[in-house]
Design a protein around this nucleic acid. Structure first.
Length: 727
RNA sequence: GGGCGAUUAGCUCAGUUGGUAGAGCAACGAAUUUACACUUCGAAGGUCAGGGGUUCGAGUCCCUUAUCGCCCACCA
């Protein structure tokens, strides 16, 4: 053993060590799998980093993701696999634009229309650049061994080309269409929002029972009722048997007499209220579907900004929020109100990205058809042969049901199927400016969809951009060079694992499966590893209003990245939320120091030991090494089963309470004793166990282990050492 | 309205196919020119949410109730 380095005389100092070690790693080039030669037939391991949104700084949830993924990656690299972890960031179109817009408005009282498309995009670019640099700095501080040479951005040139290529293919296959459908409209952001981006918030509002001719109808939104001229009831409702489908009756309504048409439809719940309702097809999905079934007129009542249209007569131009009181007053005066229930619990839809209250509107938008049949070419999907007909829904369901993709924990498979069953066509066009422009051009009645603008005069590109998840859904292969047939794509796709938060299983995981299935005839990853949310020490969600959001850099500065990583990995099985308190960080900081000092002790007491010679082992030491081999096997098995949370805990426990507390303590008299054979045997044993434990701890605590490795006189980096295999 | 999860030591959580209840932290009692006070040793602490069932045997499997949490859903 080499003589003890003087640095061991002081406690381990992560703040001084970590940036220096990361620099060494980065300069070594080993994050890039191409930097080393591998024997033919070497297994490979690839994952993509779920790209963080360039909307600000990373939080501890991101830190957890980085900790788990880096653990996986370092483990596989040490197993000798050709390992790629591909980093990047996400433009997060709507969230980013919304954030920049509101900052500009706060400071300058200017809206996007004041600035114009070009200027706003310039401002957003400046913001995202800064945000990007902060984020990549944080990713480095966590010790993430990502291949920076392959870093991607969802909005860079290569990814944009992938996006337009995907759009054009889907359009030509009839999987993308343009249609007048009811969509979720955010009047604040002035854009559509997908179903998955909607949050429902409960609200107690008055519920009005209105006299509509001979009927009583209920509504929570009297301000939408101006145009109501269809009254709908269930065909089996005996109470209304006297009325026949399509009968016409005259009723006195808000703005005078209207001729109403009776419609019988089974969508009506006979048990709710009076079992009769009038419909507002332009602003309600159920109503829209009823209107479609019976080919009824649809009329717009509310405009894009939430103002009432001329159909509201004297209320025209008023905002719906403000108009309600006056409208109710008028109804009251006309004697049209039967009664008011003041305590009605109602769910309103909110745009989770920007915050506006959703107003359904009928709009001409672009959609992905999830039910349309298409022919799958070059299929690698089990059970869906090349050339067979399938649909996006079917491929999505099939790859999980057939076990080609495994979701951890498996209970999320049910959630996934349920989502697919209820999935409607995906609205992909957005009326914001930051994002991928839709690759479609119009000239009068002509439509041109291609990756490039058409030749000739008078063409106008669609002003809309694509849902940010459209580009994210290509991430596993757009980052590897698709649509070009690159070597990276051939080698690293499908990726082995996607490791992400369970709350984006629909937004992202499902849509990656959708896109990969269609565009590549393949799965995007073999395993979905879902981690949970990080909560504070009291189990509360981290939120701005609670003020309990912590920048991981604060923890790193105080306790070191290794401690933060351990705190985020130990006791954190997939699918569970994790409470993070400072006591944990403290505990693992102590542990890092324990490893540090145990090494110091081994150095001090084995200075005479030459690892090149093999001293004969005493029976006791043979027994220790046998037990240690069982420990290695156990840890390796946990790693292979992706039980990182258990492996980390067992490594911690063994190092501290077996290696340090028992074996090291017991070694003191042996090493200072007169029995040279016993001392030599023990030195060899300690040396073996220490080195192997440093290797196994490395994926979890890369900084301290790498630093110790180097202070022990190794000129090579621990990060590319081999995972121990028994002694 | 449907679905899922949780309920185990003061706190945070493990407990893989059923076989005598585990860890970390905290708290408690000791030790001390020690590799490490970012230490060591020791002891304490649990009707495994309640009830029922299957079994030789249940924290684990089944049924049921309660509380908390999450997700989904077009009751106007």
């Amino acid at each position: 053993m080499v003589s003890m380095n003087e640095r061991f005389l002081k406690p381990y100092n992560p703040a001084e060590t970590e940036p220096r070690i990361y620099k060494r790693w980065e300069e070594s080039g080993y994050f890039n799998p191409d930097s080393r030669e591998y024997p033919p037939g070497t297994e490979h391991f690839s994952i993509v980093l779920p790209p963080p949104n360039v909307t600000g700084i990373l939080h501890v949830g991101h830190a957890m993701m980085l900790a788990i993924e880096d653990t996986m990656v370092r483990y596989h690299r040490m197993r000798g696999h050709k390992t790629l972890w591909l980093p990047g960031t996400d433009s997060a179109a709507i969230a980013t634009q919304s954030k920049v817009e509101s900052e500009i408005y706060k400071k300058e009282k200017k809206t996007r229309n004041d600035l114009g498309r070009e200027e706003l995009l310039k401002r957003i670019d400046a913001f995202t650049k800064q945000s990007h640099d902060t984020i990549t700095g944080q990713v480095r501080a966590m010790g993430s061994s990502v291949d920076w040479s392959r870093e991607a951005y969802t909005l860079d040139q290569k990814r944009s080309y992938a996006v337009t290529t995907a759009f054009v293919r889907m359009y030509r296959d009839g999987l993308i269409y343009r249609g007048d459908r009811i969509v979720n409209w955010d009047p604040n952001m002035q854009t559509t929002v997908s179903d998955d981006e909607i949050e429902h918030v409960e609200e107690t509002t008055p519920f009005y029972y209105l006299k509509y001719g001979p009927f009583i109808i209920g509504t929570a939104r009297p301000e939408t009722k101006f145009g109501d001229k269809y009254v709908v009831m269930h065909p089996d409702d005996a109470r209304y048997a006297q009325y026949k489908h399509r009968d016409k009756i005259n009723v006195e309504w808000i703005n005078g007499a209207v001729t109403a048409t009776i419609i019988k439809d089974t969508a009506i719940d006979m048990g709710f209220g009076t079992g009769v309702m009038t419909i507002t097809p332009w602003h309600d999905l159920t109503d829209f579907e009823i209107a479609e079934r019976h080919d009824l007129d649809k009329e717009q009542i509310i405009d894009d900004r939430g103002l009432l249209l001329p159909i509201a007569h004297e209320f025209s131009g008023q905002h719906i929020k403000k108009a309600r009181t006056e409208i109710v007053e008028k109804l009251q005066q006309k004697g049209l109100i039967e009664k008011i229930d003041e305590r009605y619990i109602h769910r309103i839809a909110i745009n989770s990205r920007g915050g506006g209250v959703i107003e359904p509107q009928i709009k001409r938008q672009w959609f992905v058809d999830v039910d349309a049949e298409f022919t799958l070419k070059d299929s690698k999907l089990d059970g869906i042969p090349s050339g067979s007909k399938t649909s996006l829904k079917e491929t999505m369901r099939h790859v999980v049901a057939g076990g080609q993709i495994k979701i951890m924990p498996d209970r999320y498979e049910k959630v996934y199927y349920h989502w697919i069953e209820n999935l409607r066509d995906w609205c992909i066009s957005r009326q914001i400016w930051y994002g991928h422009r839709i690759p479609v051009w119009y000239r009068d009645a002509e439509i041109h969809c291609d990756t490039q603008a058409p030749e000739g005069e008078g063409w106008e590109q669609d002003p809309d951009t694509l849902d940010t998840w459209f580009s994210s859904s290509l991430w596993t292969f757009s980052t590897l060079g698709w649509p070009n047939a690159t070597a990276d794509l051939a080698l690293y796709h499908p990726t082995n694992i996607i490791e992400t938060s369970y709350d984006i299983i629909f937004f992202w995981v499902a849509r990656m499966i959708l896109m990969s299935g269609y565009l590549l005839g393949d799965i995007p990853f073999a395993t979905v590893y879902l981690h949970g949310l990080v909560r504070d020490s009291k189990g509360r969600k981290m939120s701005k209003s609670l003020g309990n959001i912590i920048d991981p850099l604060v923890y790193i500065e105080k306790y070191g990245a290794d401690s933060l990583r351990m705190a985020l990995v130990v006791g954190n099985p997939p699918g569970n939320d994790l409470s993070l308190g400072e006591d944990k960080l403290k505990a693992y900081k102590h542990f890092a120091n324990k490893v540090w000092n145990a090494t110091r002790f081994v150095c001090m007491s084995t200075e005479k030991f030459d690892p090149g010679t093999t001293s004969e082992l005493t029976p006791k030491d043979e027994e220790y090494l046998r037990d240690f081999n069982v420990h290695i096997e156990d840890i390796t098995k946990e790693m292979d089963e992706k039980h990182y949370y258990l492996a980390a805990e067992k490594l911690y426990h063994y190092f501290w309470h077996t290696f340090a507390d028992v074996i090291l303590e017991e070694s003191k008299p042996i090493l200072s004793g007169t029995d040279e054979k016993a001392a030599g045997s023990r030195m060899r044993t300690l040396h073996t166990m220490l080195f192997a434990q440093l290797r196994m701890l490395h994926p979890f605590m890369p900084f301290v282990t790498e630093e110790i490795w180097s202070l022990l006189g190794n000129s090579t980096l621990l990060m590319i050492e081999r995972w121990p295999n028994g002694y």
